[in-house]
Amino acid sequence: MIKQLLVSTLAIAASMTISATTIKVWEGNTQLKGWSDNVSVPASEFTTASEGSKLVVNITVDMTLDPTINYTNLGVKTNTDGWPELDGTGFQNPTGTDASWDLNATAASQLKNTGLIIQGQNIVVTSVDLITAEDIDPNILFEGELVISGWNSGATINPSKLNAGDAIKYTFSAPGSADGQVLVKNSSWANLLGTAKIGYSDMATGSVVVGVTEEILQNANGSIFVQGDGGCTITKVERIPDAFNPTNVICYGERACGANVFTVIPEGTSKLSVVFAKMPTWAQICDNSWTALHSNDEATTVENSDGSVTMTFSITAEDIAKINNAKELVVNSDQKFISLNYPGAESAIESIEANDTNAPVEYFNLQGIRVANPENGIFIRRQGDQVSKVRM
């Protein structure tokens, strides 16, 4: 069931197209008194920039900021060493409420890869707009050709564009070398909690999904990007809205097993469950040194209707301490895993009592939460003492 939901959600997710429009990429109130002042806008805000787009800086002129001069200055630059000007642009001396620059292909690429620095004199910057040159899909977070090699990084996205339950889909045109890997990072360059390592076997499928959990959103710290080695090529990063139910989910997205999962387990947790794509011959929960903490012969195993298998492992306080010390564990098996979870959905569903044969029809999600208007998923249907699972 869980595997089918993953496949069907990604297959039917509709992309909404927006006509050429103004996108506000920054808003604030920053005084540019002189060259030591600047406004910085991250690359993640310019994923839709292209040749023909227009960059607009909305301003207020304030000649009192530097009374030693009787003019204004305003320039747009790349956020790289030395802050060189965006290609094809130049300084302006605005006297009105905005200044704008038409972007050529190189300037658009510079914004997408490095972000923007704005410098000037006697200017207060209030907002920055990007006017797109063509129709855009707001769910496209990155599009280009990023080769991951030598532990470089890129494909930065803004977590404010994501919600728990969304999926980030990375499209790979080439998987690179067999020993290659990609890690999802936060703005502090730490492995992003709630994600799993992406290996060669995952990239070789052509696309990889990273489910957005609450832990991811709490630990992104302003940006999400990838870093790795091996020569794989990422061509697109897109948001799949409402791809899964994030309740009790630690990590979501099919991976070849032997994958490192980065997380912190709450103290007092007694069980972890892993959903595998198929029945594994063997399975282990390991610490980050690949020492097995628990194996399948200790687990409770349930075969799901779609062919996937849920194994639930009991864990101890000592296990939690080992995992949390490294903020990492390893799911190891001979089958791919779909998600790592805190068990609870089954007990929540079982708590739905049926006590009135004449009661109206009620629907609940798989966590036992009542749903008024069920659609696009699998739900628990209850009418009186009749309880069943249905697809809507």
Rank of each mutant, 00 (worst) to 15 (best):
T114V: 00
I118S: 08
G120A: 01
N122M: 07
V124E: 14
V128K: 03
L130T: 01
L130Y: 12
I136G: 07
N139I: 00
L141P: 14
E143G: 10
G144Q: 05
E145H: 11
L146D: 04
L146P: 04
L146M: 12
S153K: 12
S153Q: 11
G154D: 08
G154S: 09
A155G: 04
T156K: 07
N158G: 10
P159R: 11
N163S: 15
N163A: 14
N163E: 14
G165R: 09
G165A: 05
D166V: 03
A167E: 05
A167C: 05
Y170L: 15
F172A: 09
F172T: 01
S173K: 11
S173Q: 09
P175K: 09
P175Y: 02
G176A: 10
S177M: 12
G180Q: 07
Q181L: 05
Q181M: 02
V184N: 08
K185C: 10
A190R: 13
L193D: 15
L193H: 08
T195G: 08
I198T: 09
I198P: 03
G199C: 06
S201C: 00
D202V: 00
T205M: 08
G206C: 09
V209S: 13
G211C: 13
E214Q: 15
E214V: 02
E214M: 00
E215I: 01
I216A: 05
I216Q: 08
I216Y: 05
N221V: 04
G230D: 00
T233S: 15
T233Q: 14
I234W: 07
T235W: 14
